[in-house]
Design a binder for these strands. Structure first.
Lengths: 115, 115
DNA sequence: GATAGATACCTTTTAATACTAGGTAGGTGA
DNA sequence: TCACCTACCTAGTATTAAAAGGTATCTATC
């Protein structure tokens, strides 16, 4: 597990990305993230549900209920067109951030910073 | 400029890295980060000084005053041995986080997730 | 049938931390 | 004079991840 603070600002990006692949329900998102990250991205339900509700308010995602033959009903989330646009922006932003961080923290020799 | 939240959890890493290269004073750190990141990592003074004071309390950095012939005295910060050890840990943590994020947000085809 | 654990949703409160907006003071240049 | 740069600082606000709790259904085991 990482410093929890590292995830800040990236949760919505990760959720939009997963929902861009397919509709998923909250509990499924938690399990999927855990699986894909080899148990190092354990987003907690206290993080997930408020984050989903915010994305919904922003109209980046929508939901629909689906009754199950067995077990509780599932609230499936679906990305919207606006959500897809925001996802592209956020992904670019993330890539830029990583580039800048690498520039700052991994300073190769013979690469002087110009003023 | 990025989503401000992306920086969370990374500020101390960045500061320790810069101070691992040479002693610097607060105002210099702000300018240096701005320069190295092509003006995309503009850490504000309201962020910097509390962060430095925290690192100091944790004994990852120390300071000494240096009077200037002209202008206000400068408070130079210096990384400690403990700080260097923490820097190594934090750098590894950052790399792992980036790896996991890339795994989650950039899903190549023909790379199914195994259960 | 009782109990534990998994599934599935949720909220309230706490903690961490980046930023806004302000302050002090000296130096420089038009 | 006035603006702007250097150089330090803090109080308050906003955001958000997590902890800790709740509800309800279903399944498996003793």
């Amino acid at each position: 597990m990482f410093n929890r603070e590292l995830l800040k600002g990236s949760t919505s990006l990760v959720l939009l990305q997963l929902l861009n692949e397919r509709d998923m329900y909250g509990y499924e998102l938690v399990k999927e993230l855990d699986k894909r990250s080899d148990h190092s991205l354990q987003v907690k339900e206290g993080t997930l549900y408020p984050a989903l509700h915010k994305l919904e308010k922003q109209e980046y995602i929508e939901f629909y209920w689906q009754e199950q033959e067995k077990g509780p009903a599932r609230k499936y989330y679906q990305i919207t067109q606006e959500g897809r646009e925001v996802l592209i922006e956020k992904t670019e932003e993330w890539q830029q951030f990583v580039n800048v961080m690498n520039k700052v923290i991994r300073r190769p020799k013979n690469d002087p910073v110009k003023d």
